[in-house]
């Protein structure tokens, strides 16, 4: 491994630390590698003599809570289910062909991790005393997987955000939290994508799936370049819905109550049969239009509907 590869990997592995901590650690190891090379080692040697990145990460972090690492060959895992609470859950891609878990345990919180003979990897957090520690009182749970994964993913937390970025999943994808925002960016799913929170926003960008269902309450929904082979359904109550270049092969449903619905649909209006309604607002859509083979259903109570078609 070269110095810059090592530092990039290290940066990724400690990405859940505060930015100034990350820079400090990077400059420390960068300096050590430079010093070793100045002392006569070649670059590869200087890097490899630091030891494994897992050990480095484990040792350099503060010891109040302990970083744990789990790693499983991706081909032996048919599904991953994570059930956590009071902390963020992050899904990102890793190099190589393993599914790895980074998580912290301390005296209040432990994880039960179980891989069934059928390949179902199940992770569940356990608290020694069930009490409320505050939002995000714990460090995030990070799941890393190969950029392309054949199985099924289910991520669940509460009082914490969920973030997924840069993965292709052949199975289905389910994301559920409450009181936490959800960001799904550059993710492609062969199966269904089910995304659910409450009291927080949902942000989708470059998400493709067969069906996309996103639901929150008291939060806005953004869907940027979101595409479905079948249907897209975005639903909230007290929050606006904003879409950009939204596309679905079979149908689109956008529903809120006390806010507007606006943006662009990457399609021709004539491909749709439209049902739309707002009670106290203006709309750019006809309230009832037959004709197209796809359904477009857009409903709010107190807000404007301002949707435009790009084709």
């Amino acid at each position: 491994m070269t110095k810059s590869e090592f530092l990039a990997q290290l940066r990724r592995r400690i990405s859940n630390q505060p930015p100034e901590e990350i820079e400090r650690s990077i400059s420390y190891f960068s300096e050590i590698i430079d010093d070793r090379m100045e002392d006569g080692m070649d670059e590869q040697e200087a890097v490899s003599s630091l030891g494994s990145i897992d050990t480095i990460v484990r040792e350099m972090l503060p010891n109040d809570s302990e970083l744990k690492l789990g790693s499983y060959p991706a081909r032996e895992v048919s599904s991953v289910r994570i059930r956590d609470i009071n902390c963020a859950v992050i899904l990102e891609c890793s190099d190589g062909d393993v599914i790895s878990l980074d998580y912290y345990e301390n005296k209040h919180k432990k994880y039960e991790i179980f891989l069934s003979p059928e390949g179902e990897l199940s992770v569940r957090s356990k608290y020694s005393k069930m009490r409320f520690f505050g939002f995000n009182a714990f460090r995030p749970f990070v799941l890393r997987m190969p950029r392309s994964y054949r199985g099924k993913i289910s991520l669940e937390t509460g009082n914490g955000p969920i973030r997924a970025k840069d993965v292709n999943i052949e199975g289905s994808f389910s994301v559920k939290t409450s009181n936490g925002v959800i960001d799904i960016i550059d993710v492609s799913i062969e199966g269904m994508a089910e995304i659910r929170t409450s009291n927080a926003r949902i942000y989708l960008e470059n998400l493709t799936a067969s069906h996309i269902r996103a639901k929150t309450m008291n939060g806005r929904i953004d869907a940027i370049s979101t595409r479905a082979k079948n249907t897209v359904s975005l639903q909230t109550m007290n929050g606006r819905i904003h879409v950009e270049r939204l596309y679905a092969e079979k149908g689109i449903s956008l529903v809120t109550s006390n806010a507007g619905i606006h943006g662009t649909i990457d399609d021709n209006i004539r491909t749709f049969s439209i049902k739309s309604r707002t009670m106290n607002g203006n709309s750019t859509l006809p309230s009832n239009m037959d004709g197209g083979t796809k359904d477009l259903s857009v409903h709010t109570m107190n807000g404007n509907i301002d949707l435009h078609f790009l084709k």
């Binding site: 190891f29 050590i32 010093d35 630091l50 030891g51 480095i56 040792e59 350099m60 972090l61 010891n63």
Partner: peptide, 26 residues
């Protein structure tokens, strides 16, 4: 002194790696 030199100076007395020294310096 600096990180690499500190490790070299201590190593003969007690086994230490860069990653263990880091949190100690902090």
């Amino acid at each position: 002194s600096y990180g690499y030199k500190i490790i070299k100076d201590i190593s003969p007395i007690v086994e230490i790696s860069e990653s263990t020294l880091y949190p100690i310096l902090r």
